[in-house]
């Protein structure tokens, strides 16, 4: 074997090795790590107790209720199967609205309410001006179901 071929083999092996490691890492990531828990998982007690975790899902239509202090907001997060009520005090992000995906970080109280200290809004992959969006009813419906899919159940 000429030195050049040897080096070629070495580099090829390195790339194959890295590729294998990447595949393994991605498989492991896909099956084990969930960035957030869904309401179904929370109600099935799969989410950690007494520890901060993320709850993700869609904000249920008509569930946003400002409390009397004017700062605290209650809303329901759903994965279209189960629902968890979230309590949050603070400023909500611009994209937060009913039917929109959210990721909240906080603890589950003994009363079953999720006390969040951070609420982040998710959005879907459509970047369309409003006029176009309103004429494309079907596209909008698809977009909404996509959001539900992305934000929804992770099982």
């Amino acid at each position: 074997m000429k030195p050049r071929q040897k080096r070629l083999l070495f580099v090829a092996l390195a790339i194959v090795g890295v590729g294998t490691a990447a595949t393994l890492a991605l498989t492991a990531l896909n099956s084990n790590i969930s960035y957030f828990f869904s309401p179904t998982q929370v109600l099935a007690n799969e989410a950690p107790q007494d520890r901060v975790f993320r709850l993700g899902g869609l904000v249920t239509e008509g569930s946003i209720a400002r409390q009397e202090d004017g700062l605290t907001v209650h809303f329901d997060v759903t994965d279209n199967a189960e629902t968890v009520t979230v309590a949050y005090t603070g400023i909500l992000p611009d994209l937060f609205s009913e039917g929109q995906g959210v990721v909240t970080k906080g603890r589950l109280g003994p009363d079953g309410v999720f006390y969040a200290d951070e609420v982040l809004a998710k959005h879907d992959e459509s970047y369309m001006p409003p006029e176009v969006e309103s004429t494309l009813q079907t596209a909008q419906a698809e977009g909404a179901s996509d959001t539900a899919e992305t934000a929804g159940v992770s099982n």
């Binding site: 959005h123 879907d124 369309m128 309103s134």
Partner: peptide
Amino acid sequence: ETADRLGGSNAQK
């Protein structure tokens, strides 16, 4: 040449 604001379920400003 683009809209100032987006619409639909990604209503970004």
